[in-house]
Computed example of a mutant assay.
Amino acid sequence: MDPITLAVGGGLLLVGYVAGLLTRRKRQPKPLTADCGCGHSLAMHDQENGSCHAEVQRKDSYGKDGTYVGTTYAQCPCRQYVGPRPIEEFLAPKYLPPA
């Protein structure tokens, strides 16, 4: 190969690399969600006792005779919401009972 062809190829490679650096897209950050340790949001937890109302998928179930029963769902075993608290609870606490 002659040196001119190699120089043109290298120049095209360099131009493509610089164009890619200048026009690259920035990654969008994930939206922040207030998730508990179980992965569910505050909306899925009861405000009074803190239990989780969401359902989690259990492993595939099989009957006593070995036939496939299907996927079963059960209530989330989370007992209390441990995620970040909303700022409203700090700035404006509830003085009256909810009743």
Rank of each mutant, 00 (worst) to 15 (best):
M1R: 15
P3F: 14
I4M: 14
T5F: 09
T5W: 13
L6G: 15
L6Y: 15
A7S: 14
A7K: 14
V8K: 13
G9V: 14
G9L: 15
G11N: 11
G11R: 13
L12H: 09
L13G: 14
V15K: 12
G16A: 15
Y17V: 14
L21K: 11
L22G: 10
T23E: 04
R24C: 12
R24Q: 12
K26F: 06
K26M: 10
Q28Y: 08
P29I: 09
P29D: 08
P29R: 00
K30S: 07
K30P: 12
K30L: 11
P31L: 05
P31R: 02
P31M: 05
T33Q: 01
T33V: 06
T33I: 10
T33A: 00
A34V: 02
D35V: 08
C36H: 02
G39R: 00
G39I: 02
S41W: 09
S41C: 00
S41D: 06
L42N: 08
A43L: 02
Q47G: 00
Q47N: 04
Q47A: 02
E48G: 02
G50Q: 04
S51D: 07
S51A: 06
C52M: 00
C52V: 00
H53Y: 06
E55R: 04
E55L: 09
E55Y: 01
Q57E: 04
R58M: 08
R58K: 05
D60E: 04
D60F: 11
Y62Q: 01
Y62A: 03
G63D: 10
K64G: 03
K64I: 06
D65V: 07
D65H: 06
D65W: 11
D65L: 10
G66A: 08
G66W: 13
G66T: 09
T67V: 05
V69M: 11
V69C: 05
G70D: 01
T71K: 11
T71Q: 11
T72A: 05
T72C: 11
T72Q: 07
T72F: 08
A74Y: 08
A74R: 10
Q75G: 07
Q75H: 13
C76T: 00
C78A: 06
R79P: 11
R79C: 09
R79L: 12
Y81P: 00
Y81H: 10
V82F: 03
V82I: 11
G83P: 07
G83N: 07
P84L: 08
P84S: 13
P84G: 09
R85W: 08
R85H: 11
P86H: 11
I87T: 13
I87G: 05
I87Q: 08
E89S: 13
E89G: 05
L91Y: 03
L91C: 12
L91E: 07
A92R: 13
A92P: 07
P93L: 03
Y95I: 05
L96Y: 08
P98M: 10
P98V: 09
P98L: 05
A99Y: 15
A99F: 13
A99R: 12
A99C: 07
